[in-house]
């Protein structure tokens, strides 16, 4: 579904960035991407979704390259950043309609899906209000709904659980599982290791811009260890940053 091969991205005037990152995310995967602050998680994600250009490597989603065919590629996924700055001059429903128009969702389909997700996240009554009146959590819920309404094959999320109330987190995790059971995939970064351990089928740990370890969750978390202890072990000195 998502193939990252030898991705190298450095910033001008800095050695920071990511180096030779390779990951494979298959249909049905819920893939956790963890690492200390500044390790390169957000940089990797931004390269994948086409927000950052990169010097070396390739990224394909469902066989389509983000560099060669960005528009086709972007039709296949939905992305939610760590702090979704959504157009606060639109109402919630105007924003969802905008996204649905961009992804060419039919009027009937969008109505059904918006009803389904808005009711699940309990924000239907607020959809007529301007986004500027929303709390951080409500913006996060709106961003999640906007990501789900066009049924992407791949969900790419940067710290998706920050700001969500416990009930919304449970609902969202259920939607993620539902999506993956239908052949989709989810790739997300997180600092909440116990959530990652319980939710993810695969995981990758990144440190100083390089992948330290990656694979199936059961292959990485073995012998009674937890993901947290594994992470502290491989992240070494950076444990204070978690």
């Amino acid at each position: 579904m998502l193939s990252i091969n030898n991705l190298t991205k450095t910033y001008r005037g800095s050695s920071k960035g990511v180096h030779e990152v390779s990951l494979e995310i298959e249909s049905g995967d819920i893939y956790g991407f963890i690492g200390p602050n500044g390790a390169g998680k957000t940089t990797t994600i931004k390269c994948v979704v086409g927000i950052l250009s990169f010097q070396e490597g390739s990224i394909t989603i469902d066989g389509v390259s983000i560099i060669d065919n960005p528009i086709e590629c972007k039709k296949k996924f939905a992305y939610i950043p760590d702090n979704p700055d959504i157009y606060d001059y639109l109402t919630g429903i105007q924003y969802l309609n905008f996204i649905a128009d961009v992804f060419e969702v039919s009027a009937q389909d969008r109505e059904e899906k918006i009803k389904k997700y808005a009711r699940a996240f309990e924000i239907e009554e607020s959809l007529g209000d301007l986004v500027s009146s929303y709390s951080h959590g409500m913006k996060q819920k709106l961003a999640i709904i906007s990501a789900m309404i066009h049924e992407p094959k791949l969900l790419i999320l940067d710290e998706p659980f920050v700001g969500l109330d416990p009930q919304a987190s449970v609902v969202f995790k259920d939607f993620m599982r539902e999506m993956c059971s239908k052949g989709g995939a989810v790739f997300f970064s997180t600092h909440v290791l116990d959530v990652a351990e319980r939710l993810c089928t695969r995981v990758a740990i990144i440190k100083d811009g390089r992948i330290i370890t990656s694979g199936k969750m059961e292959d990485i978390v073995t012998n009674g260890n937890t993901l947290e202890s594994i992470f502290l072990e491989v992240a070494g000195d950076d444990k204070a940053n978690i």
């Binding site: 309609n97 039919s106 009027a107 109505e111 239907e124 209000d129 301007l130 009146s133």
Partner: peptide, 16 residues
Amino acid sequence: TSARHNYRITSLSSAP
């Protein structure tokens, strides 16, 4: 900001 919290999803239309 003013928030009315009284929205009900009715029929939606699509646009190019």
